[in-house]
Write a protein that binds this DNA or RNA. Structure first.
Lengths: 219, 219
DNA sequence: ACCTGAACACCGTTCAAGT
DNA sequence: ACCTGAACACCGTTCAAGT
């Protein structure tokens, strides 16, 4: 498993092959099937290992809104460190790694005190946001690797590309293009989480403190 | 292009091959490279065709919140009718189909009157939700097809699977399992959009009417 | 019982040869 | 100029043969 994750981290999903993994483990390609039943299972197990680790690292705060922020950030960083996870997750519905994420989000949604009939939709909104942003960042990272550019270059290239879009067809993307080059992925990700949590807390039973008061003190 | 979409609709992404497409078009496999430069490009073009059509179908209402609801529903239905689109989108960052979706969301976010510094995060939250749910549903649909089950059967199977999870490890997923079998994907999707829009409208300049008043009259 | 690695059925892509 | 389709370099997966 560690060998598989090494290969994925080094060369992305294309870098993990039954042949390359066999070479890494100094064995034959067929031998791997004695331990795992398909490549799909291998990807699930590898993703689960990453997510389980990120999960262990996230501390559970007193206020569930703080916990959601911390957990979401942990996931963001895990996707950032292992770009292949975000892309892999979208291909395994109802499988262990995704259930883990969904469950943690759901626990905190419940702790916030949202009415039972809104729990599902609220959890789904946060869950999709976390996984979606992870997937986007992963795709960007892989595209950047394919073009042998670093992240700043990719964003700059994307910014130029969007700025060059036809303002009549894509008015928003065109106008927002310049910001793309300088924006902070992580801060924007967190801002999105705050918007979601604010929306979820509106008219719920236990909005004890404003979200702003919960943020870690700025240094 | 129409032939490619036909193949994708019939057998999913695995059904579109340069060989199968060549057979459908009564030509040789190599000839396709005269019109398109890679399979990746082919998927982008096919996805763009679907999204452009869904985009044309969505009407622009007076209130941007109504427009977002309508557009999001249109996207949901397009993902539902063409399950391969959701999965394909997660592998094409900054490409034409996604820009189209992001731009439409952004235009409506701007029309709602959110402060400029919050536009990006707000648009990203809605965008990721739409694409994320589409991707999940697509993955579910493809998993269902692989097992030759219809959607009700898949959800029922997933409900049983989740209900059987260890309540200590997955308390939320375990408790929410029974609902899975009977829930309405489309209604839940819309509920999530409403939560997002509510959150985005909180403390923004132009929250003219409550969201509830904007819904189409129940029949 | 477990590993080996050639073989199989596929895939996207290329390119000399045809028209 | 455009199409053809065999050939190439891969891939995941299998399975008789070894230890």
């Amino acid at each position: 498993m560690a060998a598989a994750i090494d290969l994925l981290d080094r060369d992305g999903e294309a870098g993990l092959t039954f042949k390359s993994l066999a070479a890494q483990l100094a064995t034959g390609a067929g031998a791997i099937y004695g331990h795992i039943s398909s490549k799909s299972d291998l990807m699930v197990a590898a993703s689960d290992a990453i997510i389980a680790e990120a999960h262990r690292g996230s501390v559970c705060a007193e206020d569930p809104r703080t916990s959601i922020r911390a957990f979401a950030l942990g996931m963001f960083d895990a996707f950032d460190a292992h770009p292949w996870v975000g892309a892999a997750l979208t291909r395994m519905p109802g499988q262990s790694p995704l259930v883990r994420v969904f469950d943690t989000v759901g626990q905190n949604i419940r702790a916030i005190g949202v009415p039972p009939e809104k729990e599902w939709a609220s959890a789904m909104a946060v869950f999709n946001y976390i996984v979606g942003v992870g997937g986007q960042n992963a795709a960007n990272a892989q595209a950047a690797r394919a073009l042998a550019m670093d992240r700043t270059e990719t964003l700059a290239a994307l910014a130029i590309s969007w700025s060059g879009l036809d303002p009549a067809t894509y008015p928003f993307a065109h106008s927002v293009g310049p910001q793309l080059g300088t924006h902070d992925d992580r801060a924007d990700f967190l801002a999105g989480i705050d918007i979601l949590v604010t929306g979820i807390c509106t008219n719920c039973t236990a909005p004890r403190k404003s979200l702003t008061a919960l943020r870690e003190p700025t240094t």
